[in-house]
């Protein structure tokens, strides 16, 4: 045993002197030549049929290589025995799982399989190669922008001034587009609500044409803020639950023809506000729990607005 292991010790000592394997310049060309044709992102062929990557394995980005396909992890850093990509290229050509399959490309040479093995042993570092990872996440998410039609409300919306957005975010608010494809804004004051006042709402004036979703629940705003909010013409959702807003505040909303949801629970709003709300024809959801709106009032508003739900409980 001793006699055998001594020379191999020398060998092992000699190896690490070589520079670390560079994925982009050394490994990628090998994999590109032998594998990329069948293991890429799903694409349509000339007949319009979608071609999925073989075996569910994509090799066009680090994440796909690591994740592997239906058989398991493609690359297991540090462990060639568990890396299917390496295992499959080692198989004899006759084997049904051998890669590349017969007729689809030349088998890898010994030098090439050794290169892949050593790269895996070194930790399978991809260096600066990102492949398709850079672009994938947003585009493939379900409900991604491409699948939806444009929102007519967003027509003519200008970019919101960044300095104003920052000022509001610094107050602890959530400020941002309503969804990835929109310039329309949602603003939620969730943190430190006792410090959010009419003055805070004044700060939103430069965003008047952008705000479509505004949550001021449990803040210290009054009817004065409602006058400002009344100028936010693209507003579709407004939450003022738990504030001291009254009927006078609701009267300020008469120009908000796009409003479809109003949450006014735990406020002083009463039946006197219903005439204004009845004129907002897009209203679909109204919450009046613990307000001064009566059951009959809620029922008559619901009747006046087809397809709406007006709840007091």
């Amino acid at each position: 045993m001793l006699r055998l292991s001594l020379p191999s010790l020398f060998l092992a000592a000699a190896l690490p002197a070589a520079a670390e394997i560079n994925f982009r310049t050394q490994v990628l060309p090998v994999l590109g030549k032998a594998c990329a044709e069948c293991h890429k992102a799903p694409q349509k062929d000339s007949s319009g049929k979608v071609q999925n990557p073989k075996g569910g394995l994509r090799m066009d980005a680090p994440s796909h290589l690591l994740k592997g396909g239906s058989g398991g992890a493609g690359i297991e850093p540090g462990d060639p025995d568990k890396s299917l990509v390496y295992q499959r290229v080692l198989l004899p050509q006759e084997h049904e799982d051998a890669m590349p399959p017969k007729g689809k490309g030349k088998p890898l040479t010994f030098a090439e399989t050794e290169l892949v093995k050593n790269w895996i042993l070194e930790g399978a570092k991809f260096g600066d190669w990102k492949g398709s990872d850079a672009a994938t996440t947003a585009a493939t998410a379900p409900g991604s922008p491409a699948k939806r039609t444009a929102d007519p409300l967003a027509a003519g919306v200008t970019e919101a001034p960044a300095d104003v957005l920052k000022k509001i975010a610094d107050l602890g608010a959530i400020v941002g587009p309503v969804s990835t494809d929109s310039k329309l804004l949602r603003i939620e004051f969730v943190a430190n609500t006792s410090t959010i006042t009419d003055k805070t709402v004044d700060l939103l004036k430069p965003l008047a044409g952008n705000i479509t979703d505004l949550d001021l629940s449990n803040t210290k705003i009054t009817d004065a803020a409602m006058a400002t909010i009344g100028t936010f013409t693209r507003l579709t959702r407004l939450s003022i639950g738990g504030t001291s807003v009254t009927d006078a505040g609701i009267a300020s909303l008469k120009g908000l023809v796009n409003l479809d949801s109003l949450n006014a629970h735990s406020t002083q709003v009463s039946d006197a506000a219903l005439a204004t709300l009845q004129s907002l024809r897009k209203l679909k959801q109204v919450h009046f729990w613990k307000s001064r709106v009566s059951a009959d009032g809620a029922k008559s508003l619901q009747k006046a607005l087809p397809g709406s739900s007006v709840s007091i409980d």
Binding site: L66, D133, T140
Partner: peptide
Amino acid sequence: GYALGLPVDQVVISPSGRPFTIADKGKP
């Protein structure tokens, strides 16, 4: 994840270098 508007196939790489997603191969 879908209900929250999250990118359900966003990959997060573990310190051991393996890719994971919020719902593995689940479909919303």
